[in-house]
Design a binder for these strands. Structure first.
Lengths: 162, 162
DNA sequence: TGAACTATTGGGCGTGATTCCCACGAAGTG
DNA sequence: CACTTCGTGGGAATCACGCCCAATAGTTCA
């Protein structure tokens, strides 16, 4: 990530979804992933997990394919790349969307992301600070993830901090 | 791409065809693929998928392809391929039509395109922004496409379709 | 301990989006 | 000509979402 002046995003919370699929983020998270206009990027990570990003950070993360497309389009040279652009564009569309937080911290999970998260209306989710973004987990998926990742924590921490 | 710095077309929506094979586009898409006279190009992409283009963009896309072929023909590098060229010519004819968006951003899917899309009247379709065009997918075909393009999301589909 | 705040949650309501459904007219058929 | 099919237009019920406020719960500060 681009050395953000922002603090690391950390913490773990249990939250419940509305019957309208609204989720109020812990206020401290909201300010870290939203811009002044309360806009953020909501993305699909893996089954049972969504993530929230500052638009700028998300763009950086996506840059693999997208910036290339942007360039091609800008310069109008796209010869044989049309279908490729279409394909990536398609994926960009399913993968993420921009959303606005109401009341500074309330997120409406859009259709399409609900099924992906796999939580019923009114159900619980885990909201996790993942340093560079906020993750929203289906409780069970979260447990599985933990079981899988925890043993490697010490190793990973050493690797990333050393 | 034409100079007009049109915004990326993105977004994913589920929509229903009405009993007469009409599809109301998400209004944000309508203006991005239609000109002032509400005309757009409807094209066949692959079985289960149609696409909508601004006429200008479609022309550019075709020309990019055509000029390549023209070049090959001109330089005589088409020897054995004539039957294929012929086949291509044939396909070009059915590949696209110009359609007019009626009243409420409503698109009548013409005969010939219906079977290609493979959705019954009243059935659901997915409407996807593919950056340079809008795509209309048969739900099943869309899932298959995702499975193919996003193997990482593998588990999801097991759950969603199971 | 109590008052003042803040964070979180639940729900009302208005507006616009999406559907469902029907009417009208042109075209096709026997 | 009676009857059916299809393209078109539009009315209207329904639904979803944005906006806002009220109630509750939890914390901080005198």
């Amino acid at each position: 990530m681009p050395a953000p002046p922002d603090a690391f995003i950390t913490g773990e919370f249990r939250r419940a979804l509305d019957d309208r699929f609204r989720l109020t983020l812990p206020q401290e998270f909201a300010s870290l992933v939203a811009d002044d206009a309360s806009q953020t990027i909501l993305a699909k990570e893996c089954s049972g997990c969504l993530s929230l990003w500052k638009a700028a950070d998300w763009r950086v993360r996506m840059d693999d394919g997208m910036s290339l497309i942007r360039e091609k389009i800008r310069t109008g040279r796209m010869e044989q790349r049309w279908t490729e652009v279409q394909r990536l564009g398609r994926l960009l569309s399913t993968r993420s969307t921009e959303v606005k937080l109401a009341n500074r911290a309330r997120l409406l999970i859009p259709e399409g992301f609900r099924e992906f998260l796999g939580v019923e209306k009114g159900g619980d989710v885990m909201v996790i600070g993942a340093v560079v973004c906020v993750e929203i987990w289906h409780p069970e998926a979260w447990l599985n993830q933990l079981r899988e990742d925890m043993p490697g924590f010490g190793e990973l921490f050493k690797e990333l901090s050393g």
